[in-house]
Design a protein around this nucleic acid. Structure first.
Lengths: 157, 157
DNA sequence: AGAATAAGTAGCAAAATGAAACCGATGCGA
DNA sequence: TCGCATCGGTTTCATTTTGCTACTTATTCT
């Protein structure tokens, strides 16, 4: 088997040095993250993904293939003779914080004040608290208190 | 002017109850989050966004307009007679955690082991630590320890 | 065995994207 | 103040990507 690790996109990366851009190159289309969302919520089969997302079948085929090629999903023969299933890899499960922040932003900004929406809860049924970026010293971080340090070709100085 | 608040997409939402899906409807295309990334990094003008992202000019026009319509960016006449600029709104700045988790996932999974990439640092130049979802009790949360609670049409029971 | 279901494919129309040229309104130096 | 460069787009047109609606093949069920 080749290396499933990063898996370079066809022409090249949109912006090779930026991790945000690379992530978006891999999962930043209209559907991939919804597929991952549903995988986290228990979906395994083609039909189940199709039913939950409502995505067109040919596009779903393509996305499942790309996510697999990029190491986010893996195909696995199910226990009892069933057809094969798509399961999240470690990298796929690691998208949890991304889905969580997308969810929380949506809850704050994409619904009218009293409008109902699904929520994420833990084992005890308690609502998952807002994720807040903090620095090593515990201070809350935002766009104004951080900045991107570009990489010189050589090691970080 | 209508209400800038959420700003319903044309036909309707992909999945009206899901905050993840709504967020992706608003900013989940190939470019919007890169525009927001650059806005957080100081870009203000059309040309500056164009130069940094490399996006086609007509598409950039469209994205800036949509982000503005959705309340992520706002147009502002600059101080000294300059042309008008695009600045992040509160909702836009609140996308910081989303960009951060995308960045951190990319750092972990979209680069070869020793490959260099830009990093996010705080005021002191210290690398921003990984964002970890935790429950109210402080336990680390992931896809296996949480689940989505769907909203019945009526109030939560 | 026969029917229903799963998992795709194929073909085609519609929508989104990208590249390049074009354009009017500043801004700016001589 | 004239002339040129720049900014912030718009237009046009070709290429890609989506989304539908069949159609197909392999399982699974009864």
């Amino acid at each position: 088997m080749p290396r499933p690790s990063p898996g370079t996109p066809s022409p090249a990366w949109t912006d090779p040095d930026c991790p945000v851009a690379r992530t978006l190159d891999l999962v930043g289309d209209r559907w991939s993250l919804l597929v991952v969302r549903d995988a986290m919520d228990g979906a395994r089969s083609f039909t189940e993904f199709q039913r939950r997302t409502g995505i067109a079948r040919n596009i779903l085929t393509d996305r499942l293939r790309k996510l697999t090629a990029h190491g986010v999903l893996a195909q696995q023969a199910a226990s009892s003779g069933r057809r094969l299933q798509y399961v999240l890899t470690d990298a796929g499960r690691d998208l949890f914080p991304v889905l969580l922040t997308l969810r929380q932003w949506g809850e704050r900004h994409a619904f009218e004040p009293g409008e109902p929406h699904s929520t994420l809860v833990d084992r005890h049924g308690t609502r998952v608290p807002d994720l807040r970026p903090t620095g090593a010293d515990g201070a809350v971080l935002d766009a104004d208190t951080t900045h991107v340090r570009k990489t010189g070709g050589e090691g970080q100085r």
